[in-house]
Computed example of a mutant assay.
Amino acid sequence: MRGSSVVEGVARIAVLRANAVGDYLMAVPALEALKGAYPDARLTLLGTSWHAEFLTGRPGPVDDVVALPPISGVSTQEAGHPPSEELCEELRERRFDLVVQIHGGGRFSNPFVRRLGARVTAGLRAPGAASLDRWVPYTSYHHETLRFLQVAALVGGAGDGLEEAPVAVTAADRAELAAVLGEPPRGLVAVHPGANDPRRRWPVERFAEVADGIDRPIAVTGTRAEKDLVMGVVTAMSRPATPVVGTLGLGGLAALYERCDLVVANDTGPRHLAAAVGTPTVAVYWCGNLINAGPLTRTRHRPLISWTTACPVCGASGVDPDVARCPHDPSWVTDVPVGLVMEQITDLLTAKGMLT
């Protein structure tokens, strides 16, 4: 690791973080720390199209977004998409003084960052990755928010890092929610049964049992791709619930979660979104994911931990970094019982004086 002082004369900063919702939200404290260190600099996020849609015009540390095209290992996992010289030249023309890489170990991202012509580069570096001017080692099992704050500290940024910084909910977000769902009922609790990795999904029947045990209006949220999961919860419940499937954009979903007293979820981007708008959460986590992406405080956020460490089908290790991911996709979090989840729900709602 080299360097920790503020870089002099910085007017333009680029930060590379081009992945999913939860990944971005865990990086917001580092972005805030960079903005605090360079309050007069323009901060550009090198992200994807969803970042541009969600962040444009939204108060926060990001001043503008460059939506990157598919770049292997940077903005897509697909092979065969190297960064074009035209793109790199376009970014060089922006004359960034500082480029910060908080996008993995650097195998693909560090060479890309080095092509952008900044006076100073800073970021993460795994063994074998290209070096940057200032860097910290990238290691397994390190919470992402704290990892990114270490990078910000390389160039003088400081932050507390205890939770995702708040995301501003705008009037447009609330108008979208009103147009789609009208006025949400008081005391609403949202349940989100989806997750991109099926191994992180708690069974829908357990979400339904939990939802039935909460004497509150229930909304079940999910993307269009998660419709079967959402409807699985709704149909398994013994009382009515409102499915919200692919009808709200990310801003509208933020507005919905803002109106909820609690969100119950898997380890997924919407859990981070709920926390970022100030709503308490209860979530089911696999133990390895908890280390990297779990909530860092317990006052408002309660993770329930699965200690399964091997594939339920073939026994392949999930904690040995030298063991390749097996092809099986059963849930790895079924050992989390309904009772423990209900205890945390009850405790959070009681703490707010909201339990009916």
Rank of each mutant, 00 (worst) to 15 (best):
N196D: 12
D197G: 07
P198F: 09
P198E: 10
P198V: 10
R199V: 15
R199T: 14
R199E: 13
R199H: 14
R201Y: 10
R201E: 07
R201M: 07
R201A: 09
R201C: 12
W202S: 09
W202Y: 14
W202M: 08
W202P: 08
W202N: 13
P203Q: 11
P203R: 14
P203W: 08
V204I: 09
V204K: 09
V204M: 08
E205C: 09
E205D: 15
E205T: 15
R206D: 02
R206S: 00
R206V: 03
F207T: 07
E209P: 06
V210G: 06
V210C: 02
V210M: 01
A211F: 01
A211S: 10
A211C: 09
A211T: 06
D212Y: 03
G213C: 06
G213V: 01
G213Y: 02
I214H: 08
D215F: 08
D215A: 15
D215C: 13
D215W: 12
R216C: 07
R216V: 06
R216W: 01
R216Y: 06
P217V: 05
P217K: 00
P217T: 03
I218N: 10
I218D: 10
I218A: 04
I218R: 11
I218T: 08
A219R: 07
V220I: 11
T221L: 08
T221R: 13
T221I: 04
G222T: 11
T223P: 05
T223H: 04
R224P: 06
R224M: 05
R224V: 03
A225K: 11
A225L: 05
A225S: 01
A225Y: 14
E226A: 02
E226M: 04
K227C: 00
K227D: 15
D228H: 13
D228S: 15
D228I: 11
D228K: 12
L229W: 04
L229S: 05
L229G: 02
V230F: 00
M231D: 00
M231W: 00
G232S: 04
G232A: 02
G232Y: 01
G232D: 00
G232F: 08
V233P: 07
V234L: 05
V234D: 02
V234A: 05
V234W: 12
T235D: 01
T235N: 07
A236R: 11
M237F: 03
M237I: 07
M237W: 09
S238F: 06
R239N: 05
R239D: 04
P240V: 01
P240M: 02
T242K: 02
T242R: 13
T242M: 01
T242S: 03
P243Y: 12
P243E: 05
P243L: 11
P243K: 13
V244Y: 04
V245L: 11
V245R: 12
V245C: 13
V245H: 10
G246M: 14
G246E: 12
T247H: 03
T247K: 02
